[in-house]
Write a protein that binds this DNA or RNA. Structure first.
Length: 299
DNA sequence: AAATTTCGCAACCGCACTTTT
DNA sequence: GAAAAGTGCGGTTGCGAAATT
């Protein structure tokens, strides 16, 4: 047996509200409140409307101090940051913006803000690619021919993205640290399984630098077996410690303290705020590129 | 100027959850 | 504890307005 309908659908008016209906609903609620029962409300005031429809009309349009349209830059930024953090939980987002309704924010996001953010991210992406390219050139010059790993070349990358950069195993942690600072701490990934990492994942961001223990082992394998995929198992040459262990150790030391976390698993910048972290938790999965988490700013 | 397409938004729908009986 | 009633939420729809062809 299905659920009983909340009202007699056949005898209920649908569609836009007339000014008379608005006035009647508003006057009643202002004088008597909702009485804690939306279903009974339309009968009491002689409206041929579903109780849910009355509730929606009141919450989204008639109640006092509602703002419509004219979203400020600050509101845009709050919505974007929260959407990135918690997704389409419009009621929670609306609770952060006095006078805004979840419906309004949802509509605004779907029709305008999403496009605005997307356009901004594309522009940023292009700027970052250009900047990183020039930084890499500097870095290469300074670091005595640091390598771009052949695995990065073999990744079928869209031309909009820059291949991940695998630092020379002899690079010191301090040098890497300086490079990261220059890059503004963006899109950094350390992971244990680089070949499982989809470079253009759900964040649509490619890590600029891939640091992980096996980079060094793989480099060793290339040295040992050649650079042209002669090695059947790309992870065959991986190893830890020994001759490349020191540079890995240096690298991790260089990263530690920079973002409050440094390990061979994942490095990412701080979250939007500690409040969000408290409220919604955060993902520590390995192989997961954490979205850039500084507040979005659309100016 | 007319026809067509796209956009913006109010309102509806269905479902999950909570409260009441 | 179960069923019914009520509430709240997110996704979707439909329609008028604006933009484009």
């Amino acid at each position: 047996m299905g659920r009983a309908p909340c009202c007699d659908k056949a005898n209920v008016k649908k569609g836009p509200w007339s000014p008379e209906e608005d006035a009647r609903l508003k006057a009643y609620i202002e004088q008597f409140g909702t009485g804690g029962n939306w279903i009974a409300l339309p009968r009491k005031i002689g409206l041929k409307r579903c109780g849910k429809s009355c509730r929606l009309r009141w919450l989204n349009y008639l109640r006092p101090n509602i703002k419509h349209g004219g979203f400020s830059e600050e509101e845009d930024n709050i919505i974007c940051s929260l959407y990135i953090t918690i997704g389409s939980r419009w009621s929670i987002i609306a609770a952060q913006l006095p006078g805004r309704t979840d419906n309004d924010i949802k509509n605004y996001w779907n029709t305008r803000l999403k496009k605005k953010l997307l356009g901004k991210q594309q522009r940023e992406q292009q700027a970052v690619v250009r900047r990183i390219h020039s930084l890499k050139q500097d870095f290469d010059k300074n670091m005595n021919n640091a390598i771009i790993h052949p695995a990065a070349v073999s990744m079928n990358l869209n031309h909009d993205y820059e291949a991940p950069y695998y630092p020379n195993p002899n690079t010191s942690g301090q040098d890497v640290r300086e490079l990261i600072i220059k890059m503004g701490g963006r899109r950094l990934v350390c992971c244990d399984h680089p070949f499982e990492l989809n470079p253009v994942d759900e964040t649509h961001q490619l890590p600029s630098l891939v640091f992980e223990s096996s980079n060094f082992g793989q480099f060793s394998g290339d040295v040992q077996y050649g650079m042209n995929n002669e090695v059947e198992d790309p992870t065959a040459g991986m190893f830890h410690g020994t001759e490349f262990g020191d540079s890995l150790h240096n690298l991790e030391n260089g990263l530690e303290g920079l973002y409050g976390m440094g390990s061979s698993s994942l490095v990412y910048p701080p979250l939007v705020s500690s409040d969000f972290e408290e409220s919604f938790g955060h993902n520590h999965n390995h192989n997961h590129v954490f979205p850039q988490s500084t507040p979005y700013c659309l100016q």
